[in-house]
Design a protein around this nucleic acid. Structure first.
Lengths: 121, 121
DNA sequence: GAGCCTGTCAACCAGAAGGTTGAAAGACTC
DNA sequence: GAGTCTTTCAACCTTCTGGTTGACAGGCTC
């Protein structure tokens, strides 16, 4: 089950059509018909994609007159960013530490290998 | 078809198990058995997940002695980051422009509204 | 109110995804 | 070289997904 937020977000963006919708919505709100226009698929299919994006929080549909608009929501990008940055930073830190260890190993005699104990999980 | 890179990446990260693997690998390389240990699933299933991550470029399996290690690859994070930032920035720019228009429209209000741009987290 | 466009819902279908079991090939240890 | 551990392949099952068609409700305009 893709019940948690990030799963829904990543799953929503895994589809090229939906990524394209996001890309186009970043340039401005659009009606469903405008959104659907470039794609070779039924309007119902577009609605389904829209629902996926909406459930993921990537898009909202503010109430209004009949040709309702679709709007990109940006908070979700922050969520993704936080997730990515967290692990990227952690991995980078780890690599820097490893580099330091390797540099020290090169400098000194090769039998200081026990220093690895801190870097290998 | 999830043939392009970003689709594969997002699809790979849409699964909580795989995100958890990425999270744990960011702390250090691991063998498949170590990776599999916390999960209630067969080793074959873990290999399948690993293959998805590998095909997405999120993970590599450098050659070596038999309990081969799994390593997190970070270039992919840059790709995602670029995608996210691109549309986020575009949408932000658009909102700022919209704010400016709105501010001009009700010209009664002074342009204190511009201060809002610093408060958007 | 009739008609038309917009927006939804439900049923269905084909294919992909996540998981299982079973078998088998490689690599390491003794 | 026998035995064990690691890795992979193939078949199968079930659920999810992306798409279709068809029907139908909500609003707008005449």
């Amino acid at each position: 089950m893709t019940t948690d937020g990030l799963s829904r977000i990543f799953a929503a963006l895994a589809d090229p059509t939906r990524r394209d919708m996001v890309a186009r919505l970043s340039a401005g709100d659009a009606t469903v018909n405008q959104l659907a226009e470039p794609y070779q698929m039924t309007l119902q299919a577009v609605y389904k994609h829209l629902k996926v994006l909406e459930d993921a929080g990537l898009v909202s549909r503010p109430p209004g007159p009949q040709p309702r608009s679709v709007r990109l929501e940006m908070e979700v990008f922050d969520l993704m960013d936080k997730w990515i940055e967290r692990y990227r930073r952690q991995a980078e830190k780890r690599y820097r530490r490893l580099d330091a260890v390797l540099a020290r190993m090169n400098d000194e005699t090769p039998n200081d290998i026990e220093e690895q104990k801190g870097t290998t999980a």
